[in-house]
């Protein structure tokens, strides 16, 4: 049996293009009042970090993607980006 390794996973969840993002829009509208001119395209989202035990990177990615698709993001309105890398500390 292959030895298990640990992988650090980062999942970023954002609203799909075309879905209204009232938080992002509100932040964008507030920026000029704080002196930040020329900041556009603000989108709000969520970021999750966790660690996965797996035999290799592709297995870790598959499991992390399943977590993202089944729980962390609602595919009706959100999309997720999964980043996997070997754990930095054991």
């Amino acid at each position: 049996m292959a030895a298990m390794r640990q992988f650090d996973v980062r999942v970023e969840v954002l609203l799909r293009a075309g879905i209204a993002d009232p938080q992002g829009a509100t932040i964008e509208r507030a920026l000029p009042a704080l002196g930040f001119a020329g900041v556009t395209g603000v989108r709000s989202g969520k970021s999750f970090r966790f660690r996965v035990d797996a035999a290799d990177g592709s297995v870790a990615r598959a499991r992390a993607t399943e977590v993202a698709d089944r729980l962390l993001a609602n595919p009706v309105i959100e999309e997720s980006v999964v980043t996997v890398e070997p754990a930095s500390t054991p």
Binding site: A20, Q23, V76
Partner: peptide, 16 residues
């Protein structure tokens, strides 16, 4: 909606 028994989703109110 989360369970997939109804279509669509409910997001934050316009105007927050």
């Amino acid at each position: 909606t989360e369970a997939g028994l109804l279509p669509g989703a409910l997001q934050k109110n316009r105007g927050l």
